[in-house]
Amino acid sequence: MSMSKSKVTKRAVLVGCNYPYSKFRLSGCANDVQSIKYVIMDKFGFHHDNIKVLTDDNTSPVLSSLLPTGANIKSALNDMLKNAAPGDVLFFYFSGHGTAVPVLVPGKHFRQDEAIVPCDFNLITDLDFRRLVNRVPEGASFTILSDSCHSGGLIEKEKKQNVFVPQALPQQLNLKAKPKFLVFDFINTAIDAAAGFAGNAVDAAAGFAHDGLHKIAEGAHKIFGKDVSLTFHPVQRAGGLLLDPLHEDEGILLSGCDSDETSYDIVSGGKAYGAFTHEVVDILKKMPDSITNKDLMQKAAEAVDKKGYEENQNPCLYCSDKNRDELFLGGLA
């Protein structure tokens, strides 16, 4: 369905988690949000009133409703979808830690689910994003740009598109690079402690290995209640939650790395930023015309590869064949 630009509303939820005052703190995620916000307003016609920002940047007033908790992020996304109309352009941006959730089910092959890590550890997984994408109105689009580790595959069952990355000789950069990655055992142990379960890190990991999702699901549901990820919901664990039928949908994922890789938080020259976000914003600021999802990811992947921030970070594109060649965020305003 074609819609004139004058009738299209562009809506965004932008999230940055620096996890201040913690041993796993990052430096550039709140900065990333401001960079993305500027470029989507300046270039793509997003209006301030249609942008929701959630950060834990300690330089801003701390309002509980604006902190990037799992519940607040999902509430903002649900509101965006609830208000969306056919033809709208929906955008979710995340900069922060990611993790891989091991799914150990007796009698089935081992697999991992990708997840982002909100500031309260209430994980949002690829299953949650799939359910959100399935609610997108006909003719609307939903783009996710995630600068976090294990971000490839964040929309469950979305098709991975091939983006060629030349192996360039990296530049010698004077910077500090920190992985945006939290080991799942650490999250598992923290949830155990918060839920009042006894045991140490070794016991928690062993218990998880034997019980599959049951152990962390029990703790997560005890802490977060109705706001827990669908992955850990009792109904889902009992096999009672069915996904809507999959089809050539409007979900578009631009990930900072593949599902088994790491994205990096960079400090260089007194500035802090996500490696992937920095390159995307630089490309968008300089481009005179609209750019397709495929071409944007091609340029971003080449830029990350050339800079050589760290090994093992290859930005990826996940979407239908049709959306591979669609304009990023509906094109320039």
Rank of each mutant, 00 (worst) to 15 (best):
H97F: 12
H97L: 07
A100W: 01
A100H: 11
V101Y: 11
V101G: 04
P102K: 09
V103H: 04
V103E: 13
L104Q: 07
L104C: 07
P106W: 04
G107K: 08
K108P: 05
H109M: 11
H109N: 14
H109T: 15
F110Q: 09
E114H: 11
I116H: 01
V117T: 07
D120K: 12
L123F: 06
L123S: 10
I124M: 01
T125V: 05
T125S: 15
D126Q: 05
L127A: 11
L127S: 07
D128Y: 06
D128F: 01
F129L: 14
F129A: 08
F129K: 07
R131L: 10
V133F: 05
V133R: 00
V133W: 01
N134Q: 12
R135F: 11
R135G: 07
R135K: 15
V136R: 01
V136Q: 00
V136P: 03
V136C: 01
P137W: 06
P137M: 08
P137Y: 08
E138G: 11
E138L: 11
A140V: 05
A140R: 03
T143R: 09
T143D: 06
T143V: 13
L145G: 03
S146E: 01
S146W: 02
D147H: 02
D147R: 04
D147Y: 07
D147F: 09
H150E: 03
H150D: 00
S151V: 10
G152N: 10
G153C: 06
G153Y: 09
L154C: 07
L154I: 14
I155G: 05
K157Q: 12
K157S: 11
K160R: 14
V163Q: 10
V163H: 12
A168W: 12
L169I: 14
L169Y: 07
P170S: 00
P170A: 02
P170W: 02
Q171H: 04
Q172C: 09
N174Y: 02
L175G: 00
K176V: 09
A177C: 10
K178F: 00
K178L: 04
P179V: 10
